[in-house]
Amino acid sequence: MSRLFRLLMLAATALLSPFAQAGLGVTALAPQSPDDEELLVFYPSSSPEQALARGTLRIPAAPEGRFAAGNGRLVVLSHGSGGSPWVHADTIRALVDAGFTVAGVRHRGDRSGNVADRGPVSWARRPKEVSRAIDRLAAHPQWAARLQLDRVGVYGMSAGGHTALSLAGGVWSPARFRDHCRAHLREDFQACVGLAATLTGSVFDGLRLWLARRVLEARFSDTRPQAHHDPRIAAVVAGVPAAADFDPESLRQPRAALGLITVGQDLWLKGQFHAEAVLRACTPRCERLAHVPEGGHGLLLAPLPPGLDGLEGQMLNDPPGQDRRVLAQVHEQLRGFFERHLR
């Protein structure tokens, strides 16, 4: 009954919002240079929605819909490795319902359909792409007139959480990632190798560990610190972030207000090495916005793409006992954080 009461209260709060009756408008800004990807912009709209087919998903939205009143504030969304903004459509809608405009970056070389630069090349490029998205909106007459870009928010999940932590002031290096995996390869195997392999408890695990060490030593030798600062970014939320390669000292006093969303059943990025390690470093200068003890790594994919199988399905599908209705509470905390720090 208490959970039902909380959900009813959240629904009532959403209905009382001055923007809650708006639909989800969406437009795409074409690339302006060879280094750009298409930029998706989601906003409050008064136009009727239609079901948009995006891969295996059908997303209600109003393409090129008429503008409705918003709050004039921007949140930039950084998706996970190999992902897209569309798998965060429910989160985007929650922010748009609160009046925000959301810019969904499609990260070059690490998005659906193209993962050629997955890993440190993309990790270094992603924060710059977020800044580039803000620049593109600032240079666009229509969006420059609608948005106040002196205080911008960033939300990222998984590899997008790594992007978010970078923009909060985090400093990382490929060599720090290598050193983490040297020390914790077996315990944090999926974070170190991604979907390339998994440990099965068989006699072949020794070979898998040996090959992983060889690849890590060859690919993650760069010791140069990586950092990116954008003074326009005032609030950052990292959901289940990849974080083992950050220097904890760089996050003790974040450059922007920093919130984290954590889960208790993450098989891909074990909390003790990633999200919880960040919280140990940045508390009390940061805050845990939400924790879902029964949640898996894919909880914040909303909607979760259907039909995930194999190792990808093991890492992303909801674990037994996970109740996706909890996302209403997660989204309420997310909206409240950005409202406090951006408006």
Rank of each mutant, 00 (worst) to 15 (best):
V102G: 15
D90N: 08
Q329N: 03
R106C: 12
W268T: 01
S122Y: 01
P44F: 04
L211S: 09
L279Q: 13
A183M: 01
E294P: 02
V115T: 13
E38W: 11
D36E: 08
Y155W: 13
G264D: 09
P34F: 04
R132V: 07
E49C: 03
L137F: 12
L15S: 14
F19V: 00
D117A: 15
R252K: 14
R93H: 10
G65D: 03
H341N: 10
A281F: 11
L311I: 04
V236P: 05
A144R: 15
V96C: 09
A159N: 09
V237L: 03
R213K: 13
Y155V: 09
R125V: 07
M157L: 10
M9D: 08
L74G: 13
E312L: 05
A53W: 02
A218I: 00
Q190E: 08
R106I: 10
P306F: 13
R252F: 02
A20E: 00
H140I: 08
S78T: 06
N71A: 00
V278Q: 07
D90I: 15
G23S: 04
A234W: 06
A30Y: 01
A257C: 03
A12D: 11
S17T: 14
G109E: 05
P120Q: 09
V237G: 10
A244K: 06
V75F: 01
A20N: 11
L304G: 08
L251P: 05
R118Q: 09
G259Q: 12
R340K: 14
R324F: 05
P305Y: 03
T56G: 09
Q329K: 05
R186H: 11
S221R: 10
D117P: 09
S81H: 03
D179Y: 00
L16E: 07
Q272L: 05
Q32M: 08
S202W: 02
W86G: 10
V121R: 15
H341G: 01
N317E: 03
G298F: 02
R252M: 07
R213I: 00
T223P: 06
Q265R: 15
A89M: 04
A103G: 04
P231D: 08
H162Y: 08
P34Q: 07
A164T: 09
E217V: 00
K128Y: 03
L334E: 02
